[in-house]
């Protein structure tokens, strides 16, 4: 069976869904951060696959922008996680329950 671009589209969608599901069900703040990365990389794969389909280099340049943004986002996220864990070690998302939303 030939592996075409659409396989990568499906893989990108799967990564996005796995990341999204993980973000919603996992309680460890670090794993939640990793899930965000998984979602963004699923999108990156989608961009590259479309870029190959259209033979259009712009889709691949997008990936660089997304990587930079994702790195910035993780820096802030890690900062928050570290600050929270320093005050309450072993904290999970369930321990953040003062506010009722």
């Amino acid at each position: 069976m030939e592996v075409t671009e659409s396989w990568y589209l499906v893989l990108g969608a799967l990564l996005f869904i796995i990341g999204g599901t993980g973000l919603l069900i996992r309680r460890n703040p670090l794993v939640m951060l990793m899930c965000v990365e998984l979602m963004l990389n699923g999108v990156n794969l989608t961009f590259v696959a479309f870029s190959r389909m259209f033979s259009d280099i712009r889709g691949q340049t997008v990936v660089f922008f997304v990587l930079v943004v994702a790195a910035a986002e993780v820096v802030v996220g890690l900062g928050l996680v570290v600050a929270i864990l320093r005050r309450q070690p072993e904290a999970t998302a369930d321990d953040l329950n003062v506010l009722k939303g």
């Binding site: 999204g20 939640m32 986002e73 928050l80 953040l96």
Partner: peptide
């Protein structure tokens, strides 16, 4: 802390949706 963490997680979640929409 709780507000910031919630905002960050849901914000990153929604940004990923926005980006996937763009893709």
């Amino acid at each position: 802390q709780e507000a910031a963490m919630k905002y960050f997680i849901l914000g990153a979640f929604s940004s990923a949706f926005f980006l996937y929409g763009i893709a």
